[in-house]
Design a protein around this nucleic acid. Structure first.
Length: 769
DNA sequence: CTCGGCAGAATTTTT
DNA sequence: TTCTGCCGAG
C-alpha cells in the first residue's frame, strides 16, 4: 500500500496483497473442491476460467447460480484471492444474500470481508468513503422515490412550469434514464437536451442535482454516477480499487445499464478478471435503463474475452423448454443459445385455455390449483404470473373464496409504506437536521395545524438565509411572522426534534425511535385511526423499531433501509405465489399459470403503441421468462372479454399464443370461442420442435433458427448468404464444428456436421474452409 | 387549516 | 375500480 489516499472504511483485512498462487491457508492436496465434481463440462469451464474476461451465457435453468457460487468458492479455495479482493455484484439484495449463504455453505465456514452486494450498495460504500470528492459529506442521505418526486415538483413550480404538462414523474423518468447512461447534466448532448420537454428537462435536471448537493443527498442513480466522478477526479483512489479487486463477478449482466458498465470497466482495468453472467433472452428491464448492448458487445469491450455457454437445462421438461425456445426464436438480435435437456419423458404439453372473461379465467386457474393440491402438489410449488400487478386482484378474490392460502410477492414493499416512510423521516431529521425533505414530510404529520401557508413562510425564510428548514423554523418561532397558533405548534415541533437529537448516542436508537414515535403523537394518531389497516401499520412500526436494534448506529440503519430493506415474508409456509412476470425472474415452480395472454395486456398496449419492434421483443422475452419458470407444467390462458377499470373490453388472444410451437401445446378449448390457434404465421422454419428425428434418442434439441448470434453482435461486415455456399462445400461453424453443406435456402443452410449431425444454420455463422 | 366531494388518470419497478 | 390532486365550504 504505497499511495496515501484516505481509506477510512476499509477493514485492514481487505487490503493485503498475497501473490496469486501463494497458497495461504489450505494445503493443496486437501483442497475441498468436491463441488466441481458435480458439474457438467461447461459449468466447470465457467468456474475454472478465472483469468481474463469471461462471459457466461447462462440460459434459463442451466445452473447459473451454482456456477457463480462455485466460482467464488473456487477462487478462495485455490488461493487465487482473499475475500477482500473479490468483488461480486448482483442486482437484488436477495441475490446477494443467497450468494453469501451458498458460498459459505460450499466452504463450510462463513466468509468475512468480501465485497458482495448490489451495484448500489457497493457504490454507496465507496461513495461513503470518498464523498468529499464529489462535494458530499459521508453522512449523505439516500433519497427514496417520494422524496425525488416532491423535490422535482418544487423545482417545476420554481420555474413556473405547469406541472400538468410536465409531470414530475415523467421528468424523473427522463432524468433517471440520463443517469442510467452515465450522463451528468453537462454531458447530455445539446440535441437530446433540447428534445426532452422543450429543453426544460435538462434545466430541471441541473436544478435537481444542485438541490441534491445542497441537501447532502443522493438518489439511486447518483450512487453510481458519483462513483464514476470520483474515479475520474481522483485517479489514485481508482487505482487503489483497481488493484484491490483481482476478481470481479457480475450476475444478471443483461440488466446492467451504461453507468454500471462504465463502473465495472474502470474497476476491472488492472487485473482484467471480469466475469459476467447473463442471458440476453431474459433482458426485461430496458425500460429501466438496462442496456442489452452491454452483453451483446462484451467480446468487443473486453478483447480476448472468452465466452462460455451454459445450455444444458436442468429445470424444465422437454415440452416446456421447446415451447419457450420456439417462442423466443421469433426475436431477432439474440446471442443465441441452443438449450437442451435430457429426459426420458417429454412431460406435459403447455396447456392453453381460452375462456369467456377474467372471472372465468380466475375460476379455471384456481380450480386447477385446488385439484393439483388435492393430488398432493404443494401450494408452494405453484405460481400465478401476471403481466401487470392489477391483474392479481381477480385471482386474489377467487383464492380467498376457495380458502386457498396465497402470498402476493413484491407488492408494496415494507419500506415503501407510508408509516415506515414517516417514521424514517423523523429519524432522518433527527440524524441530519438539514434533511429538508424529511422535515417537509413530517412537519404536519400528525396534524399540528401547520399547513401550506406556514410551510411557505418557513420556505421563504430558509431561502433568504440559505439555511435548512429546521433552522429557519427555529428562528421563525422567535418572530411574529406566524399566527400564534401555528407559531406555538411549530415551536413545539422544533423543541421536540432538538430534544430527540440530544438523545442520539445516549439512548439506544431502537428505544429512541419508539420514544420519537410516541412523543410525536404518531402512534396516537394511528391508535385513533378507525380504518381497518391502522393496526397493521402499528405492527409495521414495531417491526421497524425491532429491526433497528440490530444496527450499531442510527446512520447505519438509515442506509440499510434505503438500500437493502426487504422483508422476507414466510417463504416456508405453503402458499400459492402470485406475482408479476418481472418479479418471477430467477425463480422456479413446478406449476406455473400464465393468465392474461391477450393482445393489449400481454404484449402490453403501451409496448404495442410506442415501443415498436424492440418493445415487442422485450414483451416476448418476458413471456419466455414466464414459461421457463415452469419445471413440470405450464398453463397459458386468455379471455375473450375483460373488465378494465370497470369497462368491458373484448380482446384477442396474444400473438405469443400462436407463436408457441404446435407440437408442444395442447388446447383445451373450454368454450369453443376461438378456433384453433397457430394457423397463422407458424412457419415451421422457425423451430424444429421436439427431438431431432430419431437421431438423438431421449433428447430434446431446440434450435433457435432465427438467432442472429454473432451476426448481430459483430454488426457484421459481410452479409453472408446461402448463395455464397454450394452444396458439398466444406464449412466450419463456431458451435457445431466442421461439416458439409447439403442444401441452401435463402440465408439458411442445411449442413451435415461431422460431430453434431444435420443442422439448419444461418449462412452468416459458417465460413468456408 | 381541514375535510369532503369531484374529475381525471391508470405498465412492468431489482435499487 | 382506486388513487391522486384540486377546489370550495366550514
Amino acid at each position: 500500500m504505497t499511495d496515501s489516499a484516505p481509506f477510512p472504511r476499509f477493514p485492514a483485512s481487505a487490503l493485503p496483497d498475497p501473490e496469486p498462487g501463494a497458497e495461504s491457508h489450505v494445503p493443496a492436496r486437501a483442497l475441498p473442491l468436491g463441488f466441481l465434481a458435480q458439474m457438467n463440462e461447461s459449468q466447470r469451464e465457467a468456474v475454472e476460467t478465472v483469468e481474463g474476461p469471461l462471459l457466461v451465457l447462462a440460459g434459463a435453468g442451466t445452473g447459473k447460480t451454482r456456477v457463480l457460487t462455485s466460482r467464488l468458492a473456487y477462487l478462495l479455495v485455490v488461493g487465487k484471492a482473499r475475500p477482500g479482493q473479490v468483488l461480486a455484484v448482483t442486482f437484488t439484495n436477495k441475490a446477494a444474500r443467497e450468494m453469501r449463504e451458498r458460498v459459505s455453505r460450499l466452504l463450510g465456514r462463513p466468509v468475512e470481508g468480501w465485497w458482495v452486494g448490489t451495484f448500489h450498495a457497493l457504490a454507496a460504500r465507496i461513495l461513503r468513503a470518498h464523498a468529499e470528492i464529489v462535494g458530499l459529506r459521508p453522512d449523505y442521505t439516500i433519497l427514496d422515490e417520494d422524496d425525488q418526486i416532491r423535490l422535482l415538483k418544487q423545482l417545476i413550480e420554481a420555474r413556473r412550469l405547469d406541472e400538468k404538462r410536465w409531470p414530475a414523474r415523467a421528468l424523473l423518468g427522463v432524468i433517471q434514464r440520463w443517469k442510467d447512461r452515465g450522463l451528468t447534466p453537462d454531458r447530455v448532448s445539446a440535441a437530446e437536451g433540447a428534445g426532452a420537454a422543450d429543453g426544460r428537462a435538462l434545466d430541471l435536471y441541473a436544478d435537481y442535482q444542485e438541490r441534491l448537493k445542497a441537501l447532502n443527498a443522493a438518489d439511486f442513480g447518483d450512487l453510481l454516477l458519483h462513483n464514476l466522478e470520483i474515479f475520474r477526479a481522483a485517479p489514485d483512489v481508482l487505482a487503489r480499487y483497481q488493484r484491490q479487486f483481482r476478481y470481479i463477478l457480475v450476475d444478471e449482466y443483461q440488466d446492467s445499464n451504461v453507468s454500471q458498465y462504465l463502473w465495472l470497466r474502470l474497476l476491472a482495468q488492472e487485473h482484467r478478471n471480469l466475469c459476467c453472467v447473463g442471458d440476453d433472452d431474459q433482458s426485461i428491464y430496458s425500460w429501466r435503463g438496462a442496456e442489452v448492448g452491454n452483453i451483446l458487445r462484451f467480446e468487443k469491450d473486453f478483447p480476448g474475452a472468452k465466452v462460455v455457454r451454459l445450455e444444458r437445462n436442468y429445470r424444465s421438461t422437454p415440452h416446456i423448454l421447446a415451447a419457450a425456445s420456439g417462442l423466443i426464436a421469433h426475436n431477432r438480435g439474440r446471442l443465441g443459445k441452443t438449450l437442451w435437456t435430457e429426459s426420458d419423458d417429454d412431460g406435459e404439453k403447455i396447456h392453453i385455455t381460452g375462456v369467456w372473461d377474467g372471472e372465468a379465467e380466475a375460476r379455471t386457474v384456481c380450480d386447477r390449483i385446488e385439484s393439483l393440491h388435492g393430488r398432493g402438489h404443494a401450494l408452494n410449488s405453484m405460481a400465478i404470473l401476471v403481466r401487470a400487478s392489477f391483474q392479481t386482484r381477480e385471482f386474489e378474490e377467487r383464492l380467498v373464496s376457495l380458502a386457498i392460502p396465497y402470498r402476493v410477492v413484491g407488492g408494496v414493499r415494507f419500506y415503501e409504506r407510508a408509516e415506515i416512510r414517516d417514521a424514517m423521516a423523523y429519524l432522518r431529521l433527527v440524524n441530519q437536521p438539514a434533511d429538508d425533505l424529511a422535515f417537509e414530510r413530517i412537519v404536519n404529520v400528525p396534524k399540528r395545524g401547520l399547513g401550506a401557508a406556514s410551510l411557505q413562510t418557513i420556505h421563504v425564510l430558509a431561502r433568504a438565509e440559505g439555511a435548512p428548514l429546521l433552522a429557519a423554523a427555529r428562528r421563525l418561532v422567535e418572530t411574529d411572522e406566524l399566527k400564534p397558533k401555528a407559531r406555538g405548534a411549530l415551536a413545539g415541533f422544533v423543541r421536540d426534534v432538538e430534544r430527540w437529537r440530544g438523545l442520539v448516542g445516549a439512548v439506544p436508537h431502537g428505544e429512541l425511535a419508539g420514544q420519537i414515535l410516541e412523543e410525536s403523537g404518531y402512534v396516537a394518531m394511528l391508535r385513533a385511526d378507525r380504518s381497518p389497516d391502522a393496526p397493521g401499520r402499528l405492527d409495521n412500526l414495531k417491526e421497524l423499531v425491532a429491526a433497528m436494534e440490530e444496527f450499531g448506529s442510527l446512520g447505519g440503519f438509515l442506509e440499510h433501509v434505503a438500500l437493502v430493506m426487504d422483508r422476507e415474508s414466510g417463504e416456508s409456509e405453503d402458499k400459492v405465489s402470485l406475482m408479476t412476470l418481472h418479479g418471477a425472474k430467477g425463480l422456479e415452480f413446478a406449476t406455473v399459470f400464465l393468465p392474461g395472454w391477450e393482445e393489449g395486456i400481454f404484449p402490453h398496449q403501451r409496448a404495442l403503441d410506442e415501443g415498436g419492434e424492440e418493445a415487442l421483443e422485450e414483451e416476448r422475452r418476458l413471456a419466455y421468462v414466464g414459461l421457463t419458470r415452469a419445471k413440470e407444467r405450464a398453463f397459458v390462458s386468455y379471455a375473450a372479454n375483460r373488465r378494465v377499470y370497470n369497462q368491458w373490453q373484448t380482446a384477442l388472444a396474444s400473438r405469443f399464443v400462436g407463436e408457441l410451437p404446435e407440437a408442444n401445446v395442447e388446447h383445451s378449448a373450454e368454450t369453443g370461442l376461438y378456433g384453433r390457434y397457430g394457423e397463422r404465421d407458424r412457419g415451421s422454419r422457425y423451430r424444429s420442435g421436439l427431438s431431432d428425428g430419431g437421431a438423438n434418442h431421449g433428447r430434446a434439441y431446440v434450435h433457435d433458427g432465427l438467432s442472429a448470434l454473432r451476426a448481430a453482435s459483430r454488426a457484421t461486415a459481410s452479409h453472408a448468404s446461402a448463395l455464397d455456399f454450394a452444396p458439398g462445400e466444406r464449412v466450419f461453424h463456431q458451435k457445431f464444428g466442421y461439416g458439409r453443406v447439403v442444401s441452401a435456402d435463402g440465408d439458411r443452410l442445411d449442413v451435415d456436421f461431422e460431430k453434431a449431425g444435420r443442422k439448419r444454420v444461418l449462412a452468416g455463422f459458417v465460413e468456408a474452409v
